[in-house]
Amino acid sequence: MAGPLKDLRVVEFAGIGPAPFCAMLLADMGAEVLRITRPGAKRDAHDILSRGRADWALDLRAGGSAERVLDAIAKADVLIEGFRPGVMERLGLGPAQCHARNPRLVYGRMTGWGQHGPLAHAAGHDINYIAISGALHAIGRAGEAPVPPLNYVGDFGGGAMLLAFGLLAALHEAKASGQGQVVDAAMTDGAALLSAMMYGFKSAGQWSNQRGENMLDGGAHFYDTYACADGKYVAVGAIEPQFYALLRERCGLAEDTAFDAQMDSARWPLLKLRLADVFRTRTRDEWCLLLEGSDACFAPVLDWDEAPRHPHNVARGTFTDVGGVVQPSPAPRFGRTAPVMP
Rank of each mutant, 00 (worst) to 15 (best):
M1P: 09
P4G: 13
R9N: 15
V11F: 08
E12A: 07
P18R: 01
P20K: 03
C22V: 00
L25Q: 06
L26E: 07
A27W: 06
R35C: 13
I36Q: 02
T37A: 05
K42V: 13
R43F: 07
D44G: 03
D44R: 06
D44A: 08
R53H: 06
W56Y: 09
A57E: 14
D59T: 09
S65P: 01
A66R: 08
R68F: 01
R68P: 00
V69L: 02
A72I: 07
A72V: 09
D77C: 06
V78D: 05
L79G: 03
R84P: 06
P85C: 04
E89M: 05
E89V: 10
P95C: 02
C98L: 02
R101A: 07
R104P: 00
L105N: 02
T111E: 01
T111N: 02
T111H: 01
W113P: 02
W113F: 05
G117Q: 11
L119G: 00
L119Q: 10
A120I: 03
A123N: 08
A123Y: 02
A123F: 00
N128G: 04
Y129G: 12
A131R: 06
A131L: 08
I132M: 14
H137A: 15
I139K: 13
A145F: 01
V147Q: 04
P148I: 03
N151M: 01
V153T: 08
G154M: 00
A160D: 00
L163P: 02
L168M: 15
A169M: 14
L171H: 05
E173V: 11
S177I: 09
Q179P: 00
G180P: 02
G180A: 08
Q181D: 09
D184Y: 10
A186G: 11
A186I: 03
T188Y: 05
T188L: 09
D189S: 11
G190I: 10
L193P: 05
S195M: 15
M197N: 14
S203W: 14
Q206E: 14
W207C: 04
N209Y: 04
R211W: 03
G212H: 06
G212V: 09
N214K: 10
M215K: 05
L216R: 02
G219I: 14
F222H: 13
T225L: 06
Y226S: 01
A227I: 07
C228Q: 03
A229R: 12
D230I: 03
G231R: 01
G231K: 01
G231N: 04
K232S: 05
Y233A: 03
Y233T: 04
G237K: 08
G237I: 05
A238C: 12
I239N: 15
Q242E: 15
A245Q: 15
G252V: 15
G252F: 14
D256Y: 08
F259L: 10
Q262N: 08
M263R: 10
W268L: 07
K272C: 07
L273M: 07
A276G: 07
R282F: 01
T283H: 03
T283M: 04
R284D: 08
R284M: 04
L291G: 01
D295N: 12
A296T: 13
F298P: 14
P300T: 13
L302F: 09
D305A: 11
T318G: 11
F319A: 08
D321T: 15
P328N: 10
G335R: 11
P342L: 10
